[in-house]
Design a protein around this nucleic acid. Structure first.
Length: 304
RNA sequence: GGCAGGUUGCCCGAGUGGCCAAAGGGAGCAGACUGUAAAUCUGCCGGCUCAGCCUACGUUGGUUCGAACCCAACACCUGCCA
């Protein structure tokens, strides 16, 4: 069996995962956690990503944390490979894999039948250069000639997606599939547990979490990472909170603004996560305020 | 107390007689999403019995065919003088 725990940021996925792992252990069954969070893979990004602590990691093995340097670019395809390998490793050892994370695309890439066409740094760089000079609509026009279907599915202003579509076409000579594949688990016994919380409470938790990050020395963490090249990291520099503190360190906004904007950006992110998970009717929801949430989640897990 | 400036939709802010329910941004809501995904992008965003109507640009009154825009008084805020 494989359990996936999803939900918006700050609902308490990590601690629920830990509790489920303990619950499995109490039942004589080992369980390990596989991270499906796109930012916790970065070394040094601890406070701002609410990464599990050393103690927690010592208690229950966690996979896919601290894999990349902040200057490296994370990719779904790489994550997919590593996560699937980790899941296979758990299964081979009769350990229950608990996939935990809020990066919806990553979760789907891991758990569903999902294949990514390759990539090529040169082709990518070429297209990126064109995007910078000529703008997204110009590239979108070309996409419309090469692959009308993909063009119809991608907004003309979305340079990122247009570039990727053109890259895939250049590399494979075939049309780009601009839509997501049907929801279909790759493995037979997967269950998804969704942890949910009403908006008012979630927004409150987000504000508290950000408050706590600051109290824990988040600004110092970002300052240290900035010296290590955080600004050069295509992905890491855009992470929630890190982006805002970087702006503060560069004098673009005040520290108070950075903190406030981190809260609102995180809320917006939570909404996007909700919109993604809401659409997946395979998810079995558990309320975060429910006393028996661990038991409920465990029951769902062991039923898988 | 005197002089000057200001008061615009949830917030910031443009608008100086008709083309204004009022640019733009933020917030909020909804959505898309196949190698940066905590990313990137899109739509909606005063109300209604919705090709129209109602309410609205500090308040009240006035000028005008017509006012967020002009005039007067009042209220509050801000800068300078005392």
């Amino acid at each position: 069996m494989t359990t996936v725990i999803v939900g918006p940021t700050a609902v308490g996925k990590s601690s629920l995962a830990l509790a489920i792992a303990r619950r499995f252990r109490a039942a004589g069954q080992a369980a390990e956690i596989i991270n499906a969070d796109s930012m916790q893979v970065y070394r040094g990004m601890d406070i701002g990503t609410a990464k599990p602590t050393a103690d927690e990691r010592a208690e229950v093995p966690h996979h896919l944390l601290d894999l990349l340097d902040i200057t490296e670019t994370a990719t779904v395809a790489q994550f997919q490979r590593l996560a699937r390998t980790a899941i296979a490793s758990c299964r081979a050892r009769a350990v229950v894999p608990l996939v935990v994370g809020g990066s919806a695309l990553y979760v789907r890439a891991i758990v569903d039948s999902f294949d990514f066409p390759g990539t090529d740094p040169e082709v990518r760089a070429e297209l990126q250069g064109e995007l910078d000079h000529r703008g997204a609509p110009a590239l979108h026009e070309r996409l419309a000639r090469l692959d009308p279907e993909a063009a119809a599915a991608i907004e003309p202003g979305n340079g990122r997606r247009v570039v990727r579509a053109l890259e895939v076409i250049a590399l494979t000579g075939r049309p780009f599939r601009a839509g997501l594949p049907p929801r279909h688990y790759l493995l037979p016994d997967v269950v998804q547990v969704g942890l949910r919380l009403d908006r008012v409470a979630l927004d409150q938790r987000i504000a508290e979490r950000v408050e706590g990050m600051w109290a824990a020395g988040f600004v110092q963490e970002v300052r240290r990472l900035a010296r290590q090249g955080l600004r050069d990291g295509l992905t890491a520099s855009r992470a929630l909170g890190y982006r805002q503190v970087l702006q503060f360190l560069d004098g673009e906004i005040t520290e108070a603004e950075a903190q406030q904007q981190t809260v609102t950006a995180t809320r917006r992110f939570a909404r996007r996560q909700e919109s993604w998970f809401r659409a997946d009717n395979r998810i079995q929801w558990v309320d975060a305020t429910e006393q028996r949430r661990v038991e409920e989640a465990y029951a769902i897990s062991s039923a898988g």
